[in-house]
Structure formats: structure tokens, C-alpha cells
Design a binder for these strands. Structure first.
Lengths: 194, 194
DNA sequence: ATTTTTATTGATTGAACGTTCAATTAAGGA
DNA sequence: TCCTTAATTGAACGTTCAATCAATAAAAAT
């Protein structure tokens, strides 16, 4: 059933299938078989397009990071450049990305845990983290000193990640997410006005 | 070399070896061999004392949770019962436990990730989480309404977990930890006074 | 219609891992 | 000294999994 010029389509289908498997089974129990079956293809296709299972896993993480980055860029363009608006954008981008797919928080946690011991994933994670912190620092620095802004950014980033983590572990992820978004916003705004 | 009555000693040695292996290699690359070698014993001993690898992993998590609980109980007895003192105790207990063993944050993250898909670990994690939240809620409720206290507890718990997570993923865990403890305290105290 | 090229398959291979259990070792008791 | 019993070993076994690659299928080119 070969159709020419389907490389990008197949790659995306495999990434989607990988994310579905990771969300449902966890990274540990995700195998080449669970991915390829979900994609409706054979096991060999993964090594063919990604050089191996590890290549697909990294591509899937890169895809999630790209989506998160684009969510932020889209939101930031719909607002004025005020610090409060920027910060609300950052928080919303970090939360809405998850609402789109219920099980994404679990996927992130799986990636994080593995990134501790795999340099390829660790690099991707650190790039994303640096972006989040520097965006927050920049917004806070327009209303307070550099040092205060640094602290405020770290607290806000920690609270966002903490609610992510708790959503992944919670028995009611959705409720946790909604509460997290709201509580992160009120916290960040209170930092700006005091 | 059988010596009688060594069951509890051997179990503890295996738990220590398991935690060392998890911290160094991660839960995924921790095998019966990496654990038993670190303990200086043979591979079969793990099934003998814990019924299998999974039993040892759960016992190791239970051991970490016990240590965390005892750290809190010890600290709480050295203070008056004021809300501020209680909250500082909770935060300190959650951070000092990690300073004792540098790689503990990585161990926690490994456990958390696996607990998403393994009921035995999930149960342990939820018990610990419920304890943290209810301790915080109780302390805050002495200075504000129930609803406010609930929000404050969730924000504080999220910030603590967020800094834990960031320490595990950071390239400089110690600095991250010190900053986390300090910033969590200033946040929690500001909630009490406003 | 035939050949070439591209896409895909899936059985096979070999390595890694957890578990089992018969054998072994030495302490304690008779 | 001999026997019993608790403690421990590690080779063997069965399973799981990622990777490989020769075979296959169909589109494109001739």
C-alpha cells in the first residue's frame, strides 16, 4: 500500500499514536507494538522513520514543546504589552494546552522523570524551562526590581509546575487544573500590586 | 553464611541499596541485579524477602514516606502551636528531608511518575499528599475563613511540589532547594498577614 | 506491459530481565 | 559429632522487547 510522499504524514501519525500510548499506559509500558498498533502500522515502521524507539519519543516531546510555545505566542499577540496581561498569558498558555488533551499532564510527568537520566530529553526540558522563567522574569521586572522579579518568577513557575504535577497525580485532574489556573493567576497578580 | 535473626537488617540493607540505585540510575534502569550488587547479595534474595522486585520498590517508597512523616512530627514538637510556626514546620520538613540525601528529589520524581500507572504506589502517594494538604489547611484555617484556607493550602502545597520538581530537574539542585525553602516560607507568611 | 523506485511488512534474532528452586553453607541444638 | 534448620546462592527458564532485514506490494517511470 505504498503511496509516495507520505513521510511527514506518517511521522505525525506515529507521534500522535506515541502520545496516546504514553498517556494511557505510561512511558514504561509503551512499546513499539503499543505505538504501531495504535497507528495501524507495523512495528518496523518506527525504526524506519525515527531510527528507533528513542528517536520517536524525543520527537513526541519536541512536538509537545512546540505546541506549548505556539500557544503562548498566539495568546500574547491578542493583548496589550502590560505586565499583568503578559503574565496572565503565560499562565493561560501553560494551562490551556493541557485542557485540550486530558491526559497530557501524565505525559509531561513521564517525560520529566525520564529526562533525569537521558540527556536528549533533559536538553529539551531545560530549554522549555528557561523560556518559561525568562518570560515571567521579564514581565515582573517591569513593575519591580530585578531581584524581586527573579524571586517572583521562580515562585510563579514553581506554582505552575506544582499544579501540573498535582493534576497528573490527582484522581480528578480537571478540577485540579481549573483551580490551578485560577490560583496561579490570583497569586501572580497579587505580586504585581504589592 | 547464614546468621539467624537477620531478616530486618537484610530488608533495610536492600531498601537502602534500592534507593541508591534509583537515585543513580532511575527507576527504569534499576534492576534486581543493580540492587543486589549494591547490597552485596545475590539476585534471589529480593524475591525471598519482598516477594519480588515490585514489593521492594513499594517498601522503599513507604520508607521514604515514613521518614518524611517523622521529620514533621519532630519539628512540630519543638515549637508553639501558632499557625505561622506550624506552617514553617511543614515547609521545613518537606525541604530538609531532601538535603539529607542529595538525590532524593530524583527518587521522589521517579516514584511519582510510576505511581500514575501502578495502584500500589498511587495509594501511598495519595496518603502522603492528603496529609500535607490537611496539615496546611488546618494551620491556615486558624487565621482566615475555610474557603481562603483551602486556597492558601493548595497554593502552598503546589509551590512546595513545584520546587521539589524543579530541584529534581535542575542542574543545580542544592541552590534550587535553598531558594525553594526560603521562597515558600515568605509566600506562606504573606498569606497569613494579608 | 515491464521495470524501477518507494513504502511497508512482520517473522526472526539476540539481549535483558524477573522469577524460581534445587543446591549449598553454616549456625544452633541434641 | 551429627542432625536440623534458617539463610543464601546463582544457574536455568520463560517472557518481553527493540532492532533488523529479506520479502512484498503498489505507485511511478519507461
Amino acid at each position: 500500500m505504498p503511496i509516495v510522499g507520505v513521510e511527514e504524514i506518517r511521522k505525525q501519525q506515529l507521534i500522535d499514536a506515541a502520545l496516546a500510548s504514553i498517556a494511557e499506559l505510561g512511558l514504561q509500558k509503551t512499546t513499539i507494538m503499543t505505538i504501531s498498533q495504535r497507528a495501524g502500522m507495523s512495528s518496523g515502521i518506527i525504526s524506519h522513520y525515527f531510527g528507533g524507539k528513542q528517536g520517536l519519543i524525543e520527537a513526541a516531546l519536541r512536538h509537545l514543546l512546540d505546541k506549548l510555545g505556539r500557544a503562548f505566542l498566539e495568546k500574547i499577540q491578542q493583548t496589550d504589552g502590560s505586565p499583568a496581561a503578559r503574565i496572565l498569558c503565560i499562565i493561560e498558555a501553560n494551562f490551556t494546552e493541557f485542557q485540550r488533551s486530558e491526559l497530557a499532564a501524565r505525559t509531561w510527568l513521564s517525560f520529566w522523570a525520564r529526562s533525569m537520566h537521558e540527556p536528549g530529553l533533559k536538553r529539551l526540558q531545560q530549554i522549555n524551562n528557561a523560556r518559561l522563567c525568562s518570560n515571567l522574569r521579564y514581565a515582573f521586572a517591569q513593575s519591580m526590581s530585578r531581584d524581586k522579579a527573579q524571586d517572583a518568577a521562580r515562585q510563579t513557575a514553581a506554582m505552575i509546575d506544582g499544579f501540573w504535577l498535582r493534576s497528573a497525580l490527582s484522581s480528578d485532574p480537571d478540577e485540579n487544573f481549573a483551580a490551578g489556573e485560577s490560583l496561579c493567576k490570583t497569586f501572580a497578580l497579587s505580586l504585581l500590586t504589592h
